[in-house]
Design a protein around this nucleic acid. Structure first.
Length: 126
DNA sequence: TTTATGGCTGTCA
DNA sequence: ATGACAGCCATAA
């Protein structure tokens, strides 16, 4: 059929918006869950972003590791903190040049990704 | 439908 | 700086 022209974009997925935003985070930068939620048009739905990333289909390739919590730390699934897989995300980030403090935190002032159109800094055209 | 639970966040002690 | 709490909102039971 003529409808498989969009096989790479999972537009049917309820969190397609989230994935689209996460995909925009450039290498060497990070964003917070709340930030992603805001950009995806669902303010204060930070937890849903976490859920979205958690259930991300393997067929969707996104830099999920560049999404961290507002404290500048890595959030991990309850499932992982006991299996010790928490360092994985950190390794990926360090690989991109992101630095961690001794307490394992990232300086958001320095590494936070600033989206192209910052929300509500100015009034819409006059 | 009601309750519980999150890869969260801001506030307050 | 750290810990407890209350909002937040989509899933899972």
């Amino acid at each position: 059929m003529a409808f498989h022209l969009q096989p790479l974009l999972h537009l049917h997925h309820p969190y397609a918006g989230v994935y689209a935003v996460v995909k925009k985070i450039p290498r060497g930068k990070v964003a917070t869950y709340g930030q992603i939620a805001l950009l995806a048009g669902m303010p204060r739905a930070a937890r849903q972003v976490g859920l979205a990333l958690r259930i991300t289909p393997g067929s969707i390739k996104i830099p999920w590791h560049r999404v961290i919590n507002a404290q500048g730390q890595i959030s991990m699934r309850q499932h992982d903190w006991q299996s010790g897989g928490d360092d994985y995300q950190r390794v990926l980030l360090e690989n991109e040049g992101i630095e961690f403090s001794a307490a394992g935190k990232i300086n958001l002032k320095k590494f936070r990704w600033l989206p192209p159109s910052p929300p509500s800094l100015e009034m819409p055209c006059c």
